[in-house]
Design a protein around this nucleic acid. Structure first.
Ligand SMILES: [Mn+2]
Ligand SMILES: [Mn+2]
Ligand SMILES: [Zn+2]
Ligand SMILES: [Zn+2]
Lengths: 131, 131
DNA sequence: CCTGATAGTGATAATGATTATCATTTGCAT
DNA sequence: ATGCAAATGATAATCATTATCACTATCAGG
């Protein structure tokens, strides 16, 4: 990425001023609503460029990629299959155990992704189901 | 799934007699090579049916779903980004810590997926790079 | 200030994985 | 044998993403 164009700045601002995990289409639509419409192909290219520059991060969720701010500590995700909400958690012990697994398997880690699927507290209460 | 049709049986046999993580197209092509060709739509439907019956399991890898035998203990995956090989590991302590996270967050887990990306030993040696 | 060179844009076509449609076939139950 | 729902397979459609290509913006020299 040689230039942080107006469009890419808009994408970055949107992501950086939220705690949302955005997909490309959401970003396109939101920018459009804000009157600063950016072509969908430009959104995809911008997201890829911003990610490889380390300015944003992504998770692969189901069959679509979602982007979030990079300026927070590494974390993993709890995903509610009922409402789609995403909650973050940090667990240094698990991170360390993952390193151990890689050592044991002579595997050099580049990254990892831990997704926990289930039902969030709010959704469970709405259905009147106990833990 | 009311009937385990000839086609679904063929898919299930293929998966159950291997340790491979299959995608739909691989299954279609392999069955075709074995002379028991099954339509690609039927492969997709069969995989979904077999999975919801608990006879096979899947992981979402990048943008495609891969299926494997269900008759082995729960495990997670090390994925080599260089050669695409998938190695399995079992780590009860991590499993337990995940449960703890869910309890802490009042989240009821339905499942999880831990993918570790990196470079396997073979690929690293081929490049002459040390750990 | 011009002038290239080139990165970036946006409309749109193309791709790849998956799902939907629909006419036809299969497997049972009456 | 008849009826009927489930399953199949060819194919169209969908959805996310990438490729193409003509055009625009930016910037370094001259
Ligand atoms: Mn996050
Ligand atoms: Mn496996
Ligand atoms: Zn929820
Ligand atoms: Zn490898």
């Amino acid at each position: 990425m040689q230039r942080l164009s107006y469009q890419r700045q808009a994408i970055l601002n949107l992501i950086n001023t939220s705690n949302h995990h955005w997909d490309a289409e959401e970003i396109s639509r939101t920018l459009s609503d804000q009157g600063e419409s950016v072509g969908i192909a430009t959104v995809y290219r911008g997201l890829a460029a911003l990610e490889s520059a380390g300015l944003i991060e992504s998770i692969q969720l189901d069959n679509k990629k979602r982007y979030e701010r990079a300026n927070k500590a590494h974390h993993d995700h709890l995903i509610c299959e009922s409402c789609g909400s995403i909650k973050e958690f940090i667990h240094p012990e698990i991170e360390q155990l993952q390193q151990n697994i890689c050592t044991d398997n002579q595997f050099s880690m580049n990254g990892h992704q831990l997704l926990i699927f289930g039902t969030c507290n709010t959704c469970r209460q709405n259905k009147g189901v106990s833990l």
